[in-house]
Amino acid sequence: MTTAPAQAPAIELVNAARWYGNVVAVNDITFSLGPGITGLLGPNGAGKTTLLHMLAGFLAPSAGTVRVLGLNPSRDPSVYRRIGLVPERESVYGFLTGFEYVRFNARLQGMRDADAASRVAIERVGLQDAAHRAIGTYSKGMRQRAKVAGALVHDPQVLLLDEPFNGMDPRQRLAMMDLLGEMAAAGRTILFSSHILEEVERIGTEILVIVAGRLAASGDFRAIRALMTDRPHMITIRSSDDRRLAVTLMSDPAVFAVTLHDSELAVQTAHLSAFRRIIATASRTAGVRLTEVSPADESLESVFDYLVHR
């Protein structure tokens, strides 16, 4: 067994690629992740699941290297003890009870006290009331939580989740977000894929975006937005006198377009920080009351849209 270098990032890909015959699913991706929570985003068919499966050791990269906790997951099974995976597919046995399924995973991980660990995991996902019912009778959200319990029963250092919120109801979603947040705060490395951008935005700001097998962006989405200098920033303003404010704003070099709408003003600026410094002063000079100032394209949704449709 090889030992991991002490300072290795939890997840590291260097020029990793994976193809199936002529289909390139993941194309020359390089990034590394440390502890914390990261959202894996991308359109359907972009290669998110392939990437997660490479990290989990199901697939060897066709080129490049994949390392998890400094080890090669497709060659070194010892790393499985420290990885938890929640696959997208239904991967639970309907004839087992939730508790049996989780304990099965605990034993597979060679845990000494599988029963106690399973009870803890079942409780963490809030499944204790149904723990001794067959999974076949579970709703989709409950099966999903059983999968999560099975993946975290051995308290893994790295947790990989493929669409973990799928099928969960609003309350279960909130509880799962809290759980992932706690684990990230406790120093775990969590990578989860999702299509629900407003949820990703609430869980954290770190993202990896894959488009057509390539890494389109990684890091804090707000920093990614700031780097898109070819996209003017849009700000929506409501005030007591939009027209007067528009005139004042237009005279400032930070602003390059102002559009008057029915009850609001849309401002475009290429220099967001300069604009932020002048807006209060400018409206005071104009004698206009500001009732609302809101960034219109700084959300994860806009950033994602810019990355995918460029």
């Binding site: 920080s273 932020r276 807006i279 009351r289 609302e292």
Partner: peptide, 30 residues
């Protein structure tokens, strides 16, 4: 509103957002 505008201007702070908070649908499930 005016107090906010004038205070931000006097302190010379970079203003990101002024917005009246909305209630959220999920509150009924919290």
């Amino acid at each position: 509103y005016d107090a906010v505008r004038d205070t931000v201007a006097e302190l010379g702070l970079p203003l990101v957002r002024i917005q009246q908070e909305r209630r959220r649908l999920e509150e009924i499930f919290r």
